[in-house]
Structures are given as C-alpha cells and as structure tokens.
Amino acid sequence: MMIEPIDLRQPRHGTPPKLQVEQLSKSFGSSSGSVQALAPFDLSVEAGDFLCVVGPSGCGKTTLLNIVAGFESPTSGSVYVDGKPVTGPGADRGVVFQQGALFNWMTILDNVAFGPRSTGFSQSVARQKAMELLELVGLSAFAKKYPYQLSGGMQQRVGIARALANNPQMLLMDEPFAALDQQTRELLQEEIRSIWQRTNKTILWITHSIEEALLLATHIIVMTARPGRTKASFVSPFARSSDPHVASSMEFAAAKRTIFQLLRGEAKQAQQMEEVP
C-alpha cells in the first residue's frame, strides 16, 4: 500500500467527470495592486472520489472551494459539475463550513430541515428528512436544542447533516474539523468515512492536516504557495482500508513523510510572502 502519483488534471474515464475545473484563476484586487490567489488550475474529480486538497495557508484552497461552490466567480477559466457550468451556489453541492455557519435562531431540527424546506418540500416532510439525518449523525436526541447549546463537535455534525439533507451528489468541505480537539476530530473522521462509504458521494475536502488527508481521501492534491497550483497529486489507498490501525502502519508514515516534504518547502515560501508584503 503506497500513495502513487497520478495526473488529476484530465478526466480519467471516458465519460464527463463529476467535477471539472478548467484553467481556473482568481485574482483579488486591492488598492495596492492585485493579488493572484489561484494560478490557472486544472482539476478533474470523478464521481465517488474523495479528494483532499492540502496546501500552505493562503495558497488559495478555500478560494478554489468557494468558486466550485459558486460563492465567488473566477477571474478566468470555468467550473463544470456533471458537464454543466457553475454559475452560482446550488443545492446540488452541499457545503460544510469550518465553524459558525449554523443558524443560531433555529433549532437543530430546523437547521437540517432548512435545505429540503427551501427546495420545495412541506414542513412536515422536511422535518422528517431532517430527523433521519440527525439519527445518521447520532443527534436525534438534540433535535429541539439550539446550536449554541451543543459542543463544537456536535455543531459540526449538525453542519454535515444539514449539507446532506438535500441529498447532494457532491459535498464541499472547508476544513470542517480544524477547530475541533483531537479526539472529537478522530471520531468525526471515522463518521465521515462511513457516510462516504455508504452514500458514495463525491467529496472535495480542504484541509491542512496531512494525516486527515491520508486517512480520508482516495485522491490528494498538494498545492503550491500563492498563487496556488498543483504541486503534486496522488491516489491514496488508505481510505478504503479496513484496518482500523492503518494510521500507525509503516506505509502510512512513509506517505505522510512524502507529502510533508512536499509541503514544507511551500509552507516556507508562503511564510516569506507573508513577511514581505
């Protein structure tokens, strides 16, 4: 079991991929000149892939996700989901945020029911769907509580359930577990793995944790410092492993080292960019 280099820029099957990113670039203008966040970037994600994007801070990972989600528009290039160009946010792409995106004024149940309610289901059907999802993430006992009454880990579970409620084929996750403690994070990683295995969703996952990427992803992209482009991409076997102790294997450690070395140089460069404005 080893991670193998792979070219993720072009579709790997004959059919159109789930997500296709073509020559995507993004610059942010400011009074002191524009900053290029993303260099022309190509990416192809097949249905059922679990793709983790790792990169130094400020490399444009989140920008990539925001453009795929439709929250931001690219400076050039385009994004296709199922062959159709992305023009804005849509219920076909569920988004899980890092923190603070739950609706504080709604109960947990209504947070999760918000998607189905917004896409045309009646209140009762939407709540029923929400209840099923709360059961899936083990929070059905908290349906009537408000987000602020829950721990950080539970709140992220609600966020996941809410994103799943519209049954989107693709999930976009922006460092969803970054603010959680180690134990909670490990538990949730297991949960998301089992949800992915059961539902066969396509997942685009942004993280700065190499370990998390190796544990969850079928494919990993390592990004360069700003402007972000692909430094290396791999296919990773560990996510499909049935060994619960896979993370302590020799192969896992070797893979971690490989990616760590790739990232180290980029992180240093990113740091220098921050120091010299």
Binding site: A69, G70, F71, G88, P89, G90, A91, R93, G94, V95, F97, G100, A101, L102, F103, F114, G115, S118, T119, R162, A163, A165, N166, L172
Partner: peptide
C-alpha cells in the same frame, strides 16, 4: 450578518 450564514443558505437552495 455573517457571509457564511448567507452562503450556507444559498448552497441549501434558498431563494
């Protein structure tokens, strides 16, 4: 109002 909350609602299909 936090942009994240609005984005979350948009991605959930809200008008």
């Amino acid at each position: 109002v936090s942009a994240k909350k609005i984005q979350a609602a948009q991605s959930l299909g809200a008008s």
